[in-house]
Amino acid sequence: MSSRRPPALLLDLVLVVAALLDVWANVDSEDRLPRVCGLVAALALLLRRHRPLLTFAFTLPTALTGDAVFATMAALYTLSSLSRRRGLLAVCALTFAVSDFMPWPWTSLEVDELGETYTLVDITFTLATAAAPVFLGQLVQARRELSLRLAQISEAREQEQLLTAQAVLAKERAQLAREMHDVVSHQVSLIAVQAGALQVGSPDAEARAAAATIRRLSVQTLEELRHMVGVLRASGSRPTELTPQPSLTDLRRLIDASGIETVLETDLPDGLPPALQRAVYRTVQEALTNVRKHAPGATATVRIRHRGDTLRATVTNTAATRPALRLPGAHHGLVGLRQRAALLGGTVTSGPTPDGGHTLCLTLPADARTDPDRAEHAG
């Protein structure tokens, strides 16, 4: 875990204080010009991020007139960390070295045999002092650019992984679409054809009515399958809307098509959020499906009530009057209902009744607006 960097203004103020201390320690109080140059150089450091070259120019006189060179070195470091002009940096470093080496006021250098050695040492030290901020600034600039490149590479790699995952998902969705079209749609089409033949040829009125219901449901299922095949083949390449979602106005048609003798009691007001209407519809749909599968011959009662800030939908069925047939099922219906209710801040409960029947109850807050259908589609 990387440590947090101090604020830029605080760091600039620290550098200004350090430059002032350098002037106080290395410039004689009687030397007025070096002190003024040192003060100007220290204050100029506040401009170093926005005007690095101008800052260096303001700090150069303090290196020329005295021994306080901290401000000049800080300005040269900042210029080196922000500029890519190697020639300019070399000129600035050489100018700093000359200004720091030359005495003030300018006089001729007197070098004797013993002093020549110390002069060479002084020149070497001055050049090193001028080169160090440049090298350090260039190193910081290279590190900053390397970090940026690494971040860009990481982002590109994540994007590549996302595209790969999307390509795999598109392939799987296309394969699933082919299976649905070639197998499921074909089977449902045969069911619709056979039901139509039974509807026309059966002498029994009840059998014809049941065949008509089967044929109507098969046709409706085929339409939904075709739409879902289109959704799968789109593979995320363009926005694809789900089939128009049901509302409470579709409840009566759902009950009539269920083939179960059902009483509907509701007092819901108009204008309920679509998410609530869909949750109630799906709950009633699942409950009637379970009655048809597990309680043949039973009757059902659907009660939907709105009291205060709570909406409650209850589906109760009587005991079965004939044996139930074994039908395939994934046993995910109630799990899906509970997940849908949880998205809306509600609950789903179910259990047997004293007379051998079963009840399913959905409780929701009346102001719920989260849309589980769209959440599932987006996921």
Score class of each variant (00 low, 15 high):
M1P: 14
P7C: 06
L10Y: 05
V17N: 00
W24T: 07
E30N: 01
V36K: 02
V40C: 06
A41V: 07
L46Y: 04
L47N: 13
L47G: 14
R49H: 01
L53V: 09
T59C: 15
L60D: 00
G66I: 12
A68Q: 03
A74E: 01
R84N: 13
F101P: 02
W104F: 09
W106I: 15
V111F: 14
L114K: 12
L114W: 15
Y118C: 05
T119H: 07
T119Y: 05
I123M: 06
I123K: 03
F125T: 06
A128I: 06
A128M: 07
A132P: 00
A132M: 08
V134F: 04
F135D: 00
A142E: 12
E145V: 14
L150N: 08
A156L: 15
A156S: 09
E158K: 08
L163T: 15
L163W: 13
L176P: 02
H181S: 06
D182T: 07
S185E: 08
V188C: 00
A197C: 05
Q199Y: 03
V200F: 13
D204Q: 03
A209S: 06
A212Y: 08
L217M: 06
V219C: 08
V231Q: 11
P239D: 02
P244H: 07
S247V: 14
L248M: 10
L264G: 02
E265P: 08
D267N: 05
G271E: 02
E286A: 06
A287W: 07
A287V: 10
R292C: 04
K293V: 12
K293N: 12
A295L: 04
A295C: 04
G297V: 12
A298C: 09
T301M: 14
T301A: 11
T301C: 14
T310A: 01
T314K: 12
N317K: 03
A319F: 11
P328Y: 11
G329H: 07
L334I: 14
G336V: 14
G336C: 10
R338A: 10
R340T: 15
R340H: 05
P372M: 04
A375E: 12
